[in-house]
Structures are given as structure tokens and as C-alpha cells.
Amino acid sequence: MKNKWILLVEDNADDEELTRRALKKNKIMNELIVARDGAEVLGYLLGDGDHAGHNKDSLPSVILLDLKLPKIDGIEVLRRLRENEKTAHVPVVILTSSEEEQDIAIAYKNGCNSYIRKPVDFVQFNEAVQNLGLYWLMLNEPPVK
């Protein structure tokens, strides 16, 4: 449990705060690392670009990835992660406002593990986050320990 951490890729501070709150409300105390844009994610995980120094030794148990991001968008981040041998199997859950069919299709095509639309109703959002934490942190066996 201690080594299991979550990578949240989110440029919106409100959404970050609400996500943190939802996790807290649902007693998911795992470490939450937030990346503000696509480039930062790749820096953390792959040691690319400006954030080359920040990379951690272990991989997150799940990446919560928004699609609309500054610099490098979510789909591109997903594609790059899947291209890289190291991150090819990290569970990625798309967490986004969009329910456009083409976004869903392209996300799965590029290897996401789940696609969740952020509900406006925060009660529903809470439930979603609770389910996410439960599933990916408790039930799911990650590919790399």
C-alpha cells in the first residue's frame, strides 16, 4: 500500500483540489503526484525534457489522465507511454469532461485501460473516485510490483 501511488495529470487546479478531496473523503491515503501538463508526465516517468530529474524509481499504480492538456495533449502522452517499454503496461484511466465518441475511440485505440467522464454532480464524482481507488489500488494487480 505504501509504494502504491497515483499520478494525476490535470492542469485545472479546481479539478486537482476536488480530486484530492474526493480521495481523502474516500480514505484513499496513497501518495498523489500531480503533473500539470503532458510534458511533465513524460519527465516524471521517462526522464524526458525539463523534468528529467524528478523521475521516481517506481511506477504509479494508476495514471489518471486528462485529455485536454497544455503542451502535449493526453492522447499523445498515452501514445508515448505505450511506446516506451517501461511504461507500456501502466494502467491509464482517462478522466475527462469529454464524452465525444471519437475521443473515447482514439483513447482505447492508443491503449487506455478505462475511460471515465467526470460528472458535474460532485456526489457522482465522489462515487467515481471511490470506485477508481478501490479498483485500481486494491483489486487490480499491477503489471510491475
Binding site: 485545472n12 479546481d14 479539478d15 467526470k118 460528472p119 464524482f125
Partner: peptide
């Protein structure tokens, strides 16, 4: 939808 979520969430 983003701002709406914030309004609802923080409310």
C-alpha cells in the same frame, strides 16, 4: 463543464 464541476464540487 469544467467550471460547472468546480461550482458543484465546492458547493
Amino acid at each position: 463543464r469544467g467550471p460547472l464541476r468546480s461550482i458543484d464540487g465546492f458547493s
